[in-house]
C-alpha cells in the first residue's frame, strides 16, 4: 500500500440511501493529486453525503472508494491519517474559544501541549484571528468561523482536504479570503475536494468539475468544457418597472435570442457571450423607452447549467429535497 497513486480519490459506484431517499446513487469520481476538484450541485444533490463517505464518516451501502490508494472502509484509519474535513456545518466547537479549538486539535493530532499552543498561535496569526483568539466561537461572525474552521483543518496540513460549501453565506470579502487560502494550499501540494453550489466558485478554483444531481454525476469536465456545453454566459437585465418586462423580452429576443424570465418579476436573462452584442441590446432597450435598473454579463449560474444539462431548473430539486426532509 505504499505505492504512490496518481489519484487522490478514486470512487466507483458509491451508493448511500436513507430510508426511501437515494441520497447518493452510483457516484464515480477520479480526482487527480494536487488539484482542486469541484463537485457542483443544488441543494439535496448528495454532495455532503458523498464527502461524508469519502471522509470515513458514513459507510457506503454499495460501491467502493480509495483515498491515496487506501480503501475508505477497510483502511479507514489510514484514510483518516491523510485527510481533513471542513464540513458544511462549522466543524469547530462553538463552546470553546478559537484558540482552545486549535490547541485541542493539535493535541488530538499528536502534538504535546507546548507544540499545540505554538501551532495554534501561528495559525491564529496567519488567519487574522489573533484578536478573537480568546472569544467563544459561538460569538464569531460567519467569516471568522469559516477561517477558524479551515485553520482547524490544517493544524496538520492534510494531503487531501474536503471543503463542503466553504463560502455559502459569506460576504464577498470573506469569500475571497477563503479562495485565497484554497489557492495557497493547492500550491503547497494539498489536493482539495470542493463542494459548491456556485459555478463561479468552481470555475475560479477547480481544474475539474463533476456536476451532480439527485445522487448522480450528470456531467464532468474542466470548467471551460462545462461552460462550453452550457453556453458562454448570459446577459441579466433588471428593469425599473416590471410592467415593461414583456416589451423588454421582445427586444432582447429579437436582438440576441431566447429570453428567459426570472423569478424576480423585474428581471430577465438571455444567453450571450459577447460584450458588444450585450451593449447593443441594452442601448436598444433605452431607445425603446425601457428603463433599466441594472444589468450584468456573467457566467452561467448553476440554474442555467442545470437547465442546459437536465432541461429543468435546479430549484425543483431543492423543493423536493426539503419536503422529503420535513416528511422524514
Amino acid at each position: 500500500m505504499t505505492a504512490e497513486s496518481p489519484l487522490a480519490i478514486e470512487a466507483s459506484g458509491l451508493v448511500k440511501t436513507f430510508g426511501e431517499t437515494r441520497a447518493v446513487d452510483g457516484v464515480d469520481l477520479a480526482v487527480p493529486t494536487g488539484s482542486v476538484y469541484g463537485v457542483l450541485g443544488p441543494n439535496g444533490a448528495g454532495k455532503t453525503t458523498t464527502i461524508r463517505m469519502l471522509a470515513t464518516l458514513l459507510r457506503p451501502d454499495a460501491g467502493s472508494a480509495r483515498v491515496f490508494g487506501h480503501d475508505i472502509v477497510r483502511e479507514a484509519d489510514a484514510v483518516r491519517g491523510s485527510v481533513s474535513l471542513t464540513g458544511q456545518l462549522a466543524s469547530v466547537d462553538e463552546e470553546l474559544t478559537g484558540r482552545e479549538n486549535l490547541i485541542l486539535l493539535g493535541r488530538l493530532l499528536g502534538h504535546g501541549i507546548p507544540a499545540a499552543r505554538e501551532r495554534a498561535d501561528e495559525l491564529l496569526d496567519a488567519f487574522g484571528l489573533e484578536a478573537s483568539a480568546g472569544k467563544l466561537v459561538k460569538n464569531y461572525s460567519g467569516g471568522m468561523r469559516r477561517r477558524l474552521d479551515i485553520a482547524a483543518s490544517i493544524v496538520v496540513t492534510p494531503r487531501l482536504l474536503f471543503l463542503d460549501e466553504p463560502t455559502t453565506g459569506l460576504d464577498p470579502r470573506s469569500r475571497n479570503q477563503v479562495w485565497e487560502i484554497v489557492r495557497l494550499m493547492v500550491s503547497a501540494g494539498t489536493t482539495i475536494l470542493l463542494c459548491t453550489q456556485y459555478l463561479e466558485e468552481a470555475d475560479q478554483l477547480a481544474e475539474g468539475i463533476a456536476v451532480i444531481d439527485r445522487g448522480r454525476v450528470i456531467a464532468e469536465g474542466t470548467p471551460a468544457q462545462l461552460k462550453a456545453s452550457v453556453g458562454a454566459g448570459s446577459l441579466h437585465v433588471r428593469l425599473l418597472d416590471p410592467a415593461q418586462r414583456p416589451q423588454a423580452e421582445r427586444v432582447l429576443s429579437a436582438r440576441i435570442g431566447t429570453t428567459h424570465l426570472e423569478v424576480d418579476p423585474a428581471a430577465l436573462s438571455t444567453p450571450c457571450g459577447d460584450a458588444d452584442q450585450a451593449a447593443e441590446a441594452i442601448a436598444e432597450l433605452g431607445r425603446n423607452g425601457i428603463a433599466v435598473a441594472g444589468f450584468s454579463l456573467g457566467q452561467p449560474s448553476l440554474d442555467e447549467v442545470f437547465l442546459a444539462l437536465t432541461g429543468r431548473p435546479a430549484d425543483e430539486d431543492a423543493e423536493t429535497a426539503t419536503t422529503e426532509e420535513r416528511v422524514a
Binding site: 491519517g81 493530532l109 496567519a126 488567519f127 495557497l184 503547497a188
Partner: peptide
C-alpha cells in the same frame, strides 16, 4: 506570506 508559512509548517507529529 504568513499563510503560506503556516500551511507549509503543518508537519504531522506521531499519532496521539
Amino acid at each position: 506570506e504568513a499563510l503560506r508559512k503556516a500551511i507549509a509548517s503543518g508537519t504531522r507529529p506521531p499519532r496521539a
